[in-house]
Design a protein around this nucleic acid. Structure first.
Length: 706
DNA sequence: AGAAGGTCGTTTTTT
DNA sequence: ACGACCTTCT
């Protein structure tokens, strides 16, 4: 290791009292210490709602204000949304300089590095980013080429293969280990799987493809291969700040080490009790290993909660006691007063949805804006019932964790055309667009791809040397024409998108003959989206790394629309906070997911998930579940409430009974009215029972101006 | 042989 | 509602 000579910053050292922000006044002593800490590694262990984000924002401002170039600050967050929000808030706090702080996800940051330096590890700079489905499709092609299902043995399906290989990469452990641990039924296929994994790597390299894991892995490889690049990149990272450190995996921890390898200034913030991404290779132990990784690290704790009332924290604390391992943070609030969290058993799923919808409307009447309320659930389909109910009542909502625009099959089709224009070697996209053509199946597609990727110079010319048949030649010609057009210089991205869609439309209507009218609007959205970008490569990468929620687009962004209610998976609600939180479908088999029961450590992770959900709430918390459930195969059956809430005493989690309001007399009037039962155990008045006038059939109007 | 079309069993969480 | 697999058609 070379001797290091550290040059001190040339900008004049700013004395504390010249700062424009009053840090001591805005932060509590613990937060203040973290935000204004000096150089070197720093670990901040912070409980839920303790102002972790706030502290990071102030730290960014402080660093900028004390002379650090904003461009040399790297703020790594879990989602792009979080990064955007943090830089915006830092900007409000200080000034425009904070906008130039570099921020984003590990994946986005690595993408930027690789776009500049990929050649050093044998990739073209215009490599394509594969999302999870694309990666699985590539594996599927390789699997059928390899004829692995020769005997009658079942071979893992494409998505299982992808998960398996992803786990190997993210946990940085040998295939054997992962097989033994997670897929013992496939252990005997070890040799075939190793071979397939090798082929997959080779295929990606040959065709300029990187999946999500590669973005991290190849960046590390780059740093190992070329030390000059490592030093150059790390030199631009004067300060590295990482949010949600408990959810990083082995690769990300290694990356942090590399990025900090020149200046050694790292601040990581996290909470081991909120680690919920184990399935993705995250290891909460990273946070405890940090002091080993950086021996001089200072460790600070934030314990005072500013978000929730004490009754909500009591429930959270009680809940986390059930975990197999102990967490030493006991959350306390400066807001002792508040309603008890309520557990609400509903007769069935529809009633559960009606309860949520009506409570939302009542609270809105009381002045709580819709977007300060959230409905959280374990998995996306748990909300289907509720979505129907909300649509029926014209209550606007956004759903996070649902289907993404770029994950819809027809949008992937359009994207594949643009990807091929960007990277003609992209066999994965070729495979997709060729098979859309009538008469071309897997085999012909492979032959054509082999032919077309041979000629890098001008891949979009049809001549007689190709393996063409009359069945589809006309369409292939049109396809190539379109591709040649959009590859010309200076064709605006919107026009490229329009050209692709013009070509694609007939194929689209044939492929989705059953329901293409419903899908049609997405194509329009897509064009609208393309308008706000001018660079095709940026557009494609951003869409892959930061997919757009479908419901977010359906929300017409009209001026005086009320901000919508938030529906979200618990995972996607991480880091957010709401005045009122509803947790629905709190059932055994759903909230501890039945999948988690077999894995060891699985149940604890589900418990942390519920803990995260609960600690999103500031004032009101309702946990509900349906007592009856319907499944196609089983018919109606009785459910069990989540094991996590059954043993909680009533003075911490208050049971609430739903009661239908007895109908005054008219027929059908009882249909939509219920009131909260005895909710008066707590120290504030229960929500008044509001009887709702049931609107006429099919013209729901809850008094909302939408 | 290879593609199209129908049928059956299925469905966590995300960059 | 979606994909893996099987059968039928070109």
């Amino acid at each position: 290791m070379a001797r290091r000579i550290v040059l001190s910053s040339d900008s004049e050292p700013s004395p504390q009292d010249d700062l424009t922000v009053d840090y001591a006044d805005a932060l509590n002593p613990q937060q203040h210490a973290a935000a204004t800490a000096g150089d070197g590694p720093l670990l901040v262990v912070a409980g839920a709602g303790t102002g972790k984000t706030r502290t990071l924002i102030y730290r960014v401002a402080y660093l900028v204000e004390t002379g650090t170039q904003p461009e040399s600050i790297v703020l790594l967050t879990f989602t792009r949304r979080a990064a955007r929000e943090m830089t915006t808030r830092a900007t409000q706090l200080l000034d425009g300089r904070c906008r130039r702080v570099r921020g984003g996800t590990f994946h986005a940051f690595c993408l930027g590095v690789l776009r500049r330096h990929a050649q050093a590890i044998g990739f073209p700079s215009n490599f394509t980013v594969l999302d999870a489905a694309d990666a699985a499709d590539v594996l599927s092609v390789l699997r059928s080429q390899g004829e692995y299902h020769k005997s009658d043995e079942r071979f893992p399906r494409k998505d299982t293969l992808r998960k398996l290989f992803s786990a190997v990469t993210n946990r940085n452990r040998p295939l054997d280990d992962i097989l033994a641990e997670k897929y013992p039924q496939f252990s005997h296929l070890h040799d075939e799987l190793e071979e397939l994994r090798r082929k997959y790597r080779g295929y990606k390299k040959e065709h300029g493809l990187m999946d999500f894991d590669d973005l991290l892995l190849r960046t590390l490889e780059l740093f190992e291969t070329d030390d000059a690049i490592r030093r150059k990149v790390a030199a631009r990272c004067k300060h590295v700040l990482v949010d949600e450190y408990q959810d990083t995996n082995a690769l990300q921890a290694a990356l942090v080490q590399q990025l900090a390898s020149v200046h050694g200034n790292v601040t990581v913030v996290g909470d081991d009790a909120q680690s919920i991404y184990r399935f993705r290779g995250a290891d909460f132990r990273n946070i405890f290993r940090f002091p080993d990784q950086f021996p001089e690290a200072d460790v600070l704790k934030l314990e005072q909660n500013y978000r929730s009332t004490q009754p909500i924290l009591d429930l959270a604390n009680r809940l986390i006691e059930q975990a197999g391992r102990s967490y030493d943070k006991e959350l306390f609030s400066d807001e002792p007063e508040g309603d008890l969290p309520a557990v609400v058993p509903a007769p069935d799923g529809q009633m559960e949805s009606r309860f949520v919808a009506q409570m939302v409307l009542r609270l809105r009447e009381q002045g709580v804006p819709l977007n300060r309320m959230a409905v959280l659930f374990r998995s996306s389909h748990n909300a289907y019932d509720l979505e129907v109910e909300l649509n029926r009542r014209n209550i606007p909502f956004v759903k996070y964790g649902g289907t993404k625009l770029s994950e819809a099959a027809h949008i992937k089709d359009v994207l594949a055309h643009l990807k091929v224009a960007e990277n003609p070697q992209d066999a994965a996209s070729w495979n997709r667009i060729l098979q859309l053509i009538h008469g071309i199946g897997p085999k012909t597609a492979q032959d054509l791809i082999a032919w077309v990727t041979e000629r890098d110079d001008e891949p979009f010319v049809v001549d007689d040397s190709g393996p063409f048949s009359k069945r589809y030649i006309a369409t292939v010609k049109k396809l190539f024409e379109t591709l040649r057009f959009i590859r010309q210089k200076d064709v605006p991205l919107v026009e490229q998108a329009e050209a692709v869609i013009d070509y694609y439309r007939p194929l689209f209507e044939k492929e989705y003959y059953e329901d293409y009218p419903e899908r049609e609007p997405d194509l329009e959205h897509f064009i609208g989206l393309a308008e706000s970008y001018d660079d095709r490569q940026t557009f494609l990468s951003e869409l892959a790394l930061d997919p757009i929620e479908l419901t977010a687009l359906e929300q017409e962004p009209e001026e005086d629309d009320e901000a919508p209610l938030v529906l979200s998976t618990i995972h996607s609600a991480k880091g957010l906070e709401f005045h009122t939180v509803f947790i629905i479908r709190a059932l055994d088999g759903v909230l501890p997911s039945s999948y988690a029961l077999n894995e060891d450590g699985g149940v604890d992770e589900e418990l942390r998930l519920l803990y995260v959900a609960i600690t999103r709430a500031e004032e009101n918390l309702f946990i509900s579940y349906p007592m009856l459930k319907y499944q196609r195969f089983r018919g109606e059956y009785m459910t069990d409430p989540s094991r996590f809430i059954t043993d909680i005493s009533e003075d911490v989690l208050e049971p609430v009974e739903l009661v239908e309001e007895s109908a005054p007399s008219e027929l059908d009037a009882a249909d939509d009215v219920k009131q909260l039962g005895d909710g008066s155990g707590s120290n504030t008045s229960p929500p008044e029972s509001v009887s709702e006038e049931e609107p006429d059939e099919d013209t729901p109007d809850d008094g909302l101006p939408f």
